[in-house]
Amino acid sequence: KFNKELSVAGREIVTLPNLNDPQKKAFIFSLWDDPSQSANLLAEAKKLNDAQAPK
């Protein structure tokens, strides 16, 4: 279960257009550290992506 959630969340995070590479890497490392938090980490990444969207 975690492997699928981890890969789905990881793929989504790397495609978020408004995150820079260090931010993406930080989220990916957090996913590896605790795969059970993949849904929460993906939600946080999406929030940050939205907040950094060009206005």
Rank of each mutant, 00 (worst) to 15 (best):
F2H: 10
F2G: 08
F2M: 10
K4T: 12
K4A: 12
E5K: 09
L6V: 11
L6D: 04
S7D: 09
S7F: 13
V8E: 14
V8C: 12
V8W: 14
V8L: 14
A9G: 03
G10V: 15
G10I: 15
R11Q: 10
R11H: 11
R11D: 07
R11G: 06
E12G: 04
E12D: 06
E12V: 10
E12Q: 08
V14S: 11
T15E: 15
T15D: 12
T15H: 11
L16P: 00
L16G: 00
P17G: 04
P17I: 06
N18R: 00
N18W: 15
L19R: 00
L19I: 04
L19N: 01
N20D: 09
N20Q: 06
P22E: 15
P22K: 15
Q23P: 01
Q23T: 04
Q23Y: 02
K24V: 05
K24M: 03
K24S: 00
K24R: 07
A26V: 06
A26M: 08
A26T: 06
F27A: 00
F27T: 00
I28W: 05
I28P: 01
F29P: 02
F29E: 12
F29K: 14
F29M: 12
S30F: 09
S30I: 09
L31N: 00
L31W: 01
L31R: 00
W32F: 11
W32R: 04
D33W: 09
D33E: 13
D33K: 14
D34M: 05
P35E: 04
P35F: 04
S36M: 06
Q37F: 04
Q37D: 06
Q37M: 07
S38K: 08
A39I: 08
A39V: 10
N40H: 12
N40T: 15
N40E: 13
N40C: 11
N40G: 07
L41W: 03
L41E: 00
L42W: 04
L42D: 00
L42K: 02
A43V: 08
A43K: 09
A43Y: 09
A45E: 00
A45C: 03
K46Q: 10
K46L: 09
K47V: 07
K47I: 08
K47P: 01
L48P: 00
L48Q: 03
L48V: 07
N49V: 00
D50F: 07
D50V: 06
A51R: 08
Q52K: 04
Q52T: 02
A53V: 06
A53Y: 06
A53R: 08
A53W: 04
P54V: 10
K55H: 12
K55A: 13
